[in-house]
C-alpha cells in the first residue's frame, strides 16, 4: 500500500526513509501477494465454470474419488448436448442480431447527436447534453414495467426488434457522452479550414471529424456491443417464446429445469455465452479501457 504511492513518482531510493521499504521481500508482501490473491479470486469463478463444462457427471458429483480442481477424463458431452439437443445456436444468433442491431442504431444516433451538441454549437446545447447525460442515470429496473406496456402497444411484444429499439435508451447516453469527449479533442481549426474551402457541414462531419474520431467510434461500438450482449431485465420481460430469447435469459429460464440442475450443461452454456464478449474484448482491450476511463474522467 505504502510504496504504491511512492513508486511511480520517484525512485524510492532518493528518499532515505523509504529505502527500507523497497527491499524485495517488502515488495513481494505488499504488492505481489495481494495482487495474486485478487487475480485468483477474480478469475476463480471462470476457471470453475470452464472446468465444470468439461467434466463428466460422475466426476461432478463425487469429490471423494476425484480431485474437484482437475478433470481426469474430460468430455464434450455437455457442449454437444447444448448445441444439438437445445435451441442454443438459435439463442446465440438472436443475441448476436440484437447486439449488432442496437449497437448500429445507437452509434448512428449518438454520433449525430454528439456532433450537433459539440460542434454545431447552438443556444441550449449544453442543456441538451446534460439531459442526455441524465438519461444515463435512469436505471432499467424503474423502466421495465411501463416499457413492457409500451412494447405491447407497438405490437412488438415477444419480438427481438423490441430489444433493438429499447437498448439504445441506455446505449445512446453513454455513447453520446463518450463521443462528445472525442470530438472535443479534435482541433476546431481543421473544420474552419474546410469551411473556408467551401465544404458543407455534412461533408465536414463525414470527411474530417468522423475519420479523426474512429478510435472513439470503436470504443463506443464495442462498449455498446458488450452492454447489449449482457442486458437481462428487458429481454426477460419482453420476450416470451423460447426461440426468441437471448442467451442470458434462455440459459436461466430454459436450461434450469426441475430439481436436479444440469450443472455441466449450465456451465457450458455460460462459458459459450461469455466467449463472444470475452474474445471481442480481448481484441480491443485498449479501446475498452480508454473508453471506460475516458467516460469517467469526462
Amino acid at each position: 500500500m505504502t510504496d504504491t504511492v511512492a513508486q511511480p513518482t520517484a525512485d524510492a531510493k532518493a528518499a532515505p526513509d523509504t529505502m527500507a521499504w523497497d527491499s524485495g521481500l517488502r515488495r513481494l508482501m505488499m504488492i505481489y501477494l495481494p495482487l495474486g490473491c485478487f487475480v485468483l479470486i477474480l478469475l476463480f469463478p471462470f476457471y470453475w465454470m470452464a472446468i465444470t463444462s468439461f467434466k463428466p457427471n460422475a466426476e461432478l458429483m463425487n469429490y471423494k474419488a476425484h480431485n474437484p480442481f482437475w478433470i481426469s477424463s474430460p468430455t464434450l458431452a455437455h457442449i454437444k448436448h447444448l448445441l444439438f439437443d437445445t435451441a442454443y445456436p438459435r439463442w446465440l444468433w438472436t443475441t448476436m442480431l440484437v447486439a449488432i442491431g442496437s449497437t448500429t442504431l445507437s452509434l448512428v444516433a449518438s454520433t449525430l447527436a454528439a456532433y450537433a451538441i459539440e460542434r454545431l454549437r447552438f443556444r441550449g446545447s449544453p442543456y441538451v447534453g446534460l439531459g442526455i447525460y441524465l438519461a444515463y442515470l435512469v436505471p432499467p429496473s424503474i423502466l421495465f414495467i411501463p416499457l413492457a406496456t409500451v412494447v405491447v402497444q407497438f405490437g412488438l411484444f415477444d419480438s427481438p426488434i423490441a430489444l433493438i429499439l429499447v437498448y439504445p435508451t441506455f446505449l445512446v447516453p453513454f455513447c453520446t457522452w463518450l463521443l462528445i469527449g472525442y470530438f472535443k479533442s479534435i482541433p476546431y481549426e481543421l473544420e474552419e479550414c474546410a469551411l473556408v474551402d467551401g465544404a458543407t457541414r455534412l461533408q465536414i462531419l463525414r470527411r474530417i471529424t468522423l475519420p479523426l474520431a474512429v478510435p472513439g467510434l470503436i470504443s463506443a461500438g464495442i462498449f455498446s456491443f458488450t452492454l447489449s450482449w449482457n442486458e437481462f431485465i428487458y429481454a426477460l420481460a419482453f420476450i416470451q417464446s423460447g426461440a426468441n430469447k437471448t442467451v442470458p435469459v434462455a440459459i436461466l429460464t430454459e436450461l434450469v429445469t426441475g430439481d436436479v440442475y444440469q450443472w455441466g450443461a449450465l456451465m457450458a452454456g455460460s462459458l459459450l455465452g461469455s466467449l463472444p464478449v470475452a474474445v471481442f474484448y480481448s481484441l480491443f482491450v485498449d479501446y475498452y479501457v480508454s473508453s471506460l476511463t475516458g467516460a469517467v474522467k469526462e
Partner: peptide, 29 residues
Amino acid sequence: LNNHFPFKSLLRAIILLPWIVPTVLSALA
C-alpha cells in the same frame, strides 16, 4: 496496479473480465 511490474497491461485486461462477462452467466457460476 499503479505500481510498475511486468505484464501490467495484461493483468489490467484480465482483471476487467468479471465486469465484461454477462452478469447472469457469472451469477450462475
